[in-house]
Structures are given as structure tokens and as C-alpha cells.
Design a protein around this nucleic acid. Structure first.
Lengths: 217, 217
DNA sequence: AGCCTATTTCAACGTTGGTTGAAAGACAAG
DNA sequence: CTTGTCTTTCAACCAACGTTGAAATAGGCT
């Protein structure tokens, strides 16, 4: 019965996730985390080896699940196209929809997680290494699907396009409040339906223009 | 001749900018900054009132210049279209080209600055407030230009599209190394010519698709 | 020269950071 | 009940944090 201790472990992860997402790794104190988790400070070092390891565990926990559901969505959309390739927009939707579903199920948890991912992705210190470690296999699979949907496209165009996608996606799901301020309430960062309607279309148009330029056949 | 002290002040700002950009506000120590600036710790509190004020000064210093050159570029492109409106791609290029020019002039400085901006923009704690404080007037002007170029477009589509642009742009100029890792060297984050060729086109396509959907007139 | 202000140095303050060792409690197995 | 293992608490260490006051220096002005 590892249940009781397992629950503590999860409470620590939840608290750490929320605080890291809100203020960033360095700004958050182990003592803050354990206060929020309603547990003794030393327990952090019993369940995890260090603050840094706790951070990695927070990242890992949901990355596995997210990668799994995204992979499933991608397989799904490819399964629906046995002969031809799916459209770019369908592929991108297979990347974003699983996330939108998770946010609909448990907004609090996944919102914190995505806010954290946005900070990691945009950090020079961590962006290169951590994002690669946790998301590379799925992203490569995703890029391969895009390559099939855009057979005349250079490698470089796909990678650059994916990079633009990655920036747009991470900022959007971070829900920083910037959009809300800028639009004076016309748009709300937390409005997932608006994202679902717009983001895949916006990004697909970018891919298609970059990969079918007038200077190429 | 305030030159000598002014030079110290600038060295502090440079050091702070580089370190904040690399590791984030909270991870950086005033002592680290002053060591890099080759000055005594206490000088930080003579030239600035607190660590937080120093951070604000770092952000402010280049924001003013960047806003100025971007405004000039926007005026320029609008001046070249006395009757019709500029294209969306031209407007976006007026937003990105000044930055590319500054990076070409002094890559080190502006690279650090943009890496810092990327972190701020993606932080829930700061993203809403600080980005608004430093960049709102210009961004609103820029959005107004886009509105003219897309007269049939809803407000919401423009704000969402700008938000996607903002995410793509900040991640791209942050040069985190993610793209380099992912593409196995096919693309380099530091390749500004590649950005100039691709980013405005990619983003303009997104705006145009979102703002001219088949479901509207 | 001496004076005045702007700048820089030095040494320290109190607090809080991550982390740890040893002891206490919980609880199943024998 | 006793033993042993997993979990939790308690108290503390020491290094490093942001910040400050007072003393030293520098450099133009009279």
C-alpha cells in the first residue's frame, strides 16, 4: 500500500507545478512548495533528491501523458487517410486538440503545466535541452507527418515553420494575460474554443505558404 | 562630465541584461551582475534603487529605441502607400526588420535583450503587465495598420493573430537552441537571413487566412 | 590651496536559501 | 508484543542573498 505516501508525492508535485508555473524555477522556494503541499520541508528531499530533481519530475509527469494522447491523435488522423495524406491543418489539429481536451477536463492542472512549459521553451538555459529531452520523439513524428503532407517542401522550411508554431502555441497556452490586456477584454486567453477555431488554421496557412513559394516548382 | 559614472551604469546594465537573459531574473544574483560588470556590489544600489529597479531599467533601455525604429519603419511603409493600404506582409516586415537590423549591428546586445523579452512575454507573473507597459503604444499602432490592411476582419481575429505572431516572434528571437537541436543543424537559430525570408511570409499567411474565412462575406 | 558633491569602496546586517541527520511515528509481518 | 521498513517530523547547518551606513576617493569650482 504505497497509496498514502504516493498521495503526498502527488501533492508535492501539484504544489511545485503551480508555483513553478506562476513564478519560475528560481523564484520559488522549496519551503513555499511544501507549505502549499501541507507537508514538512524535509519530505521534499525524501520523495525527490533535490529541488532540481523535483522540477524534472514535474515536467516529466505530464509530458508522458501528453505525448501519448498526441501520438494517438496523430495515428488517428493518419488512419483516416489510408491513401492520401492528411491536410496540414488536420495534422496541426492533432497536435493541439489533445491539449484542448486535457484543458477541458482539468483546466487548473494543465494550465499550470503549459504555463511552465512556455517558460522552459523560451529559456535559453533550458529551452534547448529540456524541450528536446521531453518532447523530441513526438515532435519528430509530427514533423514527419507534415513532411508527407508537404512533399515538395524543403527540410528547412518545415523546421522553421514548426519553430514558429512552437512559439505561437506555447505563448497561447501559457495564458499570460497579455492578450487580455492588449485586446481590452475582446479576447480572453482562457477561451479555448477561440483557440481551437483559429490556431490550427492560422498555422496551417503559414506552413502552406512557406512550403509552396512562387520561386519553387 | 558624467561620462565616467555613466559608463559604469551602462556596464552594470549590460551585465545585468546578459545574465537576466541567460538565467532569468530570480536566478541571477546582484553579486554576479556586479562581478561581471567589474564593479563593487554596493554600486548597484547607488545607480539603481533595488534589484527590481535594475531589471526595469534593463527592460526600458532598449524598449525605447526599439519602439522608435519600429515606429519609423511603420511610418515608412505607410508613406509608401499614400492611397491603398500596405500588404500584411509589409506591415509585419516593418515590425521584424528593424529588429533584424539591430541584431546585425550589435548581435550580442540585442540578442541578450530579446532572450530576456521572450522570458518576460511568456511569464504569467510579468507577461501581462510588463509587456503592456513597455510595448503597448507601438503594438496598438501596429494593429491599427493591420486593421486597415484587413478591413473586413473582426477585432478578435486580429488580436488572436497578433498573439500568435507575438509567440512565434519572441521564441524565434530568443535563439534558445531548440531549433538547432531539433533540426540537427539543418537550421540555425542565429541565422537572421532565414528569419527575414520566412517569418513575415509565414505570419502574413496566417493573418490572411483567419481574416478571410469562407464563413464570412 | 581647500571645498563640495558625485562616485566608489569596505565591511557588515539580518534573512532566507537548499539541504541534512537523527529521531519519532505508522504499520504490516512474524 | 516486537521487529523492521517506509514515511514523516524536528531542528539545525552554512552559504549566500539583498541591502545598507559610513568611510574613502575623485574631480571640478572658487
Amino acid at each position: 500500500m504505497a497509496t498514502k505516501a504516493q498521495a503526498t508525492r502527488e501533492r508535492i508535485l501539484d504544489a511545485a507545478e503551480a508555483l513553478f508555473a506562476a513564478e519560475g524555477y528560481a523564484a520559488v522556494t522549496v519551503r513555499q512548495i511544501m507549505k502549499r503541499a501541507r507537508a514538512d520541508v524535509a519530505l521534499a528531499y525524501y520523495h525527490f533528491d533535490s529541488k532540481r530533481d523535483l522540477f524534472d519530475a514535474v515536467l516529466m509527469r505530464r509530458a508522458e501523458h501528453l505525448n501519448a494522447v498526441r501520438l494517438e491523435a496523430l495515428d488517428d488522423v493518419e488512419g483516416r487517410h489510408p491513401d492520401d495524406a492528411p491536410t496540414v491543418e488536420e495534422i496541426i489539429a492533432a497536435f493541439t486538440n489533445p491539449l484542448l481536451d486535457l484543458l477541458a477536463e482539468d483546466h487548473e492542472a494543465w494550465h499550470h503545466y503549459m504555463a511552465l512549459i512556455a517558460q522552459v521553451n523560451n529559456s535559453p538555459e533550458w529551452g534547448g535541452e529540456l524541450m528536446t529531452r521531453y518532447f523530441d520523439p513526438l515532435v519528430r513524428r509530427f514533423i514527419e507527418a507534415l513532411r508527407k503532407a508537404l512533399p515538395h517542401c524543403d527540410e528547412a522550411e518545415i523546421f522553421w515553420s514548426y519553430h514558429f508554431l512552437s512559439g505561437a502555441l506555447t505563448l497561447t497556452f501559457a495564458e499570460t494575460g497579455r492578450l487580455d490586456n492588449l485586446s481590452d477584454g475582446v479576447c480572453r486567453s482562457s477561451d479555448m474554443a477561440s483557440i481551437a477555431e483559429r490556431m490550427p488554421a492560422f498555422l496551417a496557412a503559414g506552413f502552406e505558404r512557406l512550403c509552396a513559394p512562387s520561386t519553387k516548382d
